[in-house]
């Protein structure tokens, strides 16, 4: 019996026009065509989508948890990037 799994594909679905594709899960498949069929069967049985992407899981490059500080803390300090940083007179504060 063959004990190795078929390749893994990550599945992304655009739920409505105007929205981005969103990660919903993954499927195993022998090839891309089958990955698309499996994704359709598994993740869109109730009109969940208008478009599907399947991506070979190995093609995804992810940030590592230990890089979290290096990657994400600096913007927190840059409060001047937010509109609320700028104090304006009440008469023009709707800006």
């Amino acid at each position: 019996m063959n004990k190795t799994d078929w390749p893994l594909y990550e599945v992304f679905i655009r739920s409505r026009h105007g929205l981005s594709h969103k990660h919903v899960g993954s499927v195993h498949a022998a090839d891309e065509t089958m990955a698309m069929e499996n994704a359709r069967e598994l993740y869109t049985r109730r009109n969940e989508g208008t478009s599907i992407w399947v991506v070979d899981s190995n093609a995804i490059c992810a940030s590592a948890p230990e890089q979290k500080d290096a990657m994400f803390t600096s913007p927190v300090e840059k409060i001047y990037r937010h509109p609320s940083f700028y104090q304006l007179p009440a008469s023009v504060d709707k800006m």
């Binding site: 063959n2 022998a30 090839d31 089958m34």
Partner: peptide, 14 residues
């Protein structure tokens, strides 16, 4: 076990 040949055929085709 009955599905084994289907899995093999799918991989061979891919």
């Amino acid at each position: 076990e009955n599905g084994a040949w289907v899995r093999e055929a799918a991989i061979a085709y891919a």
